[in-house]
Design a protein around this nucleic acid. Structure first.
Lengths: 342, 342
DNA sequence: CTGAAAGCGCTAACAA
DNA sequence: TTGTTAGCGCTTTCAG
């Protein structure tokens, strides 16, 4: 056990003072080239690494970022995390990751835990529960304390901060339209995230598309759910009684669920039932048939969110908060039909 | 911007000394109940939160753990991470997550970055490149520095530390056997992690099962690959020329790939080709047909790894290193046939 | 060009 | 029971 060496010990060894060594190692030009060289050699020899905590205490910068996401098992968040991690580590930062599990309480606990000097700022996507409770005091508190927050995906207007999102309304509108243009006549919307701003916006985009297309003669049908078993039963019953020919979902997994259920009930995909979901994940690329989806550029979004936060942390951001809207695009695969030229 | 309040400021406000306040807040019984109450009230009023960095500097404990994983997009690691996160946050710790992207260099960089006082220990699953290079000096260095390491899944005998693994050999042996017992006669093994100890062990388990069953009259066939496009071509050609009736894979994704490819080539699953993979992830449960897999209890494994590390950090572990072997079990689904009673 | 000393916010041994 | 003081490891004035 080769305990870490400190500046002080290096001082004894080298016969220089602590401050000289500190300066030498940070290439301060108060120090002669000669001495610098000597000191650097000794430092290398003893494998000196400045203690991160001491440095943080002094500088009030931790070079670490708190990331709070609802659920790492959803491929969407995993991909965003990859983008965040890349950008952050490129810039010499680290991330402390907390999973809120969609719980308000865990979210608050994580924030509080990290807000007392552990991180320089936060990257967060709101938990479902927080959005339903509509309580974001924990965020305004840390922002007041001087810790910047950047929200992505699930955001709230109640919190004044930078945001990185997609245009959920438009994306869902376009997704629905894609099915309409491939001559679907009876399209339903399915969502496990009804309580979130994202879910609400996407549902509205779907509604608008239906209303625009059918001039309000057809009623949009939105299925919100939280429990997959309940959802399966409900959708099963629906498919039994009705013959929808299109499903738009607000995420990836429920699209796969819906598709598998429909297949098991004998629906031909996409001829009798076309499906489009959100997130270009591992599921949609490998389902059978592969799923048509709205690509949200998750990794890019993560990267932008991280860059935005770091800019803010380092004081290089403009004073007004910005909302960055990431482009989306539909990736057509076999779960939907060709679009019919009008 | 309501800058954080410090003990010193609290001292001025309350007319107590810094140390009295510190003791009072930590319920030290040197302090009278009366004073404690007063101080706690003031602290609450001003929303005092002790600075984590200062505390760490003093105590030499950061209450954070460095987690280094090869790839968060593999469902396996995401599930392990969930287990780690749960256990760790239950115990008042945080995790700094680094993704090595299977790169030796990134792994080394992450370790070095965190080893200088940022974390109390490491939880790691080795990158493919490190295993191929067979270079683990970065780990022995930090261990020598007094930072405990717990390795999970991808481990190495060259590093003396606690480990949490499954019995890869046995699990693959059993998986192969399951296909044999369902009367498969020509089983191949497919693996994208050939370079890792895990991949090697699993391949060996497969080989042993084949050799045992056929008394060495049938040659095991192992397909290692790194690139999915190359793999697809290779497997495609193979399926064209040969008629395997069983595939064992060392992971989840390649099983899905293989299955989809086989289906597209007209194979009936499982009648003509049975498939079994590793990891009970989102893919295998939602594929069509659902995939028979070896459940590795990923989340439990993560939990155990975290608990083991924390025990070691807090000095509550026995001096010898332990290797915890997590149970596995085959979950039978539609990609494999019923086992025929002998 | 080099070093002494203060101080980041906290804890804890020692004094009072 | 409370306060004084030293010190964790580092950076950074300010003196020399």
């Amino acid at each position: 056990m080769n305990k870490k060496i400190t500046l002080k010990q290096l001082a004894v060894i080298s016969n220089f003072s602590v401050s000289t060594i500190s300066k030498a190692l940070s290439d301060n030009n108060e120090i002669s080239t000669e001495t610098k060289k000597k000191i650097k050699e000794i430092a290398k020899l003893y494998n000196y690494k400045p203690n991160a905590m001491a440095r943080s205490l002094k500088s009030k910068k931790t070079k670490t970022i708190g990331v709070i996401i609802p659920n790492i098992l959803a491929h969407y968040f995993a991909k965003v995390l990859v983008g965040i991690e890349h950008e952050v580590s490129r810039r010499g930062y680290n991330i402390i990751t907390c999973i809120s599990d969609e719980s308000y309480k865990k979210e608050v606990k994580s924030i509080e835990m990290l807000a007392s000097g552990s991180v320089d700022g936060f990257l967060v996507s709101l938990s479902k529960e927080s959005q339903i409770k509509n309580n974001y005091d924990h965020f305004t508190t840390v922002i007041d304390d001087g810790l910047p927050v950047v929200m992505f995906d699930r955001t709230s207007n109640a919190v004044k901060c930078d945001k990185v999102i997609i245009n959920d309304f438009e994306a869902a509108y376009n997704a629905t339209n894609a099915l309409l243009e491939s001559s679907c006549k009876k399209i339903i919307f399915v969502s496990p995230i009804g309580g979130t701003n994202v879910g609400i916006e996407r549902a509205n985009g779907y509604r608008k598309a239906i209303n625009d297309y059918f001039k309000d003669t057809v009623k949009p049908e939105v299925f919100n759910f939280t429990d997959y078993t309940v959802f399966t039963d409900k959708l099963d019953a629906y498919l039994e009684k009705n013959r929808p020919d299109g499903i738009v979902t607000s995420d990836e997994l429920s699209a796969i669920f819906a598709m598998n259920l429909a297949i098991s009930k004998g629906y031909k995909i996409p001829e009798e039932l076309a499906i489009i979901g959100f997130t270009d994940g591992i599921l949609s690329r490998n389902s059978n048939p592969p799923l048509t989806i709205v690509n949200q550029n998750e990794t890019e979004l993560g990267r932008i969110a991280a860059a935005t936060l770091i800019k803010r942390i380092e004081g290089k951001a403009q004073s007004e908060f910005i909302t960055h809207v990431v482009e989306t695009a539909i990736i057509f695969r076999k779960s939907s039909k060709k679009i019919v030229a009008v």
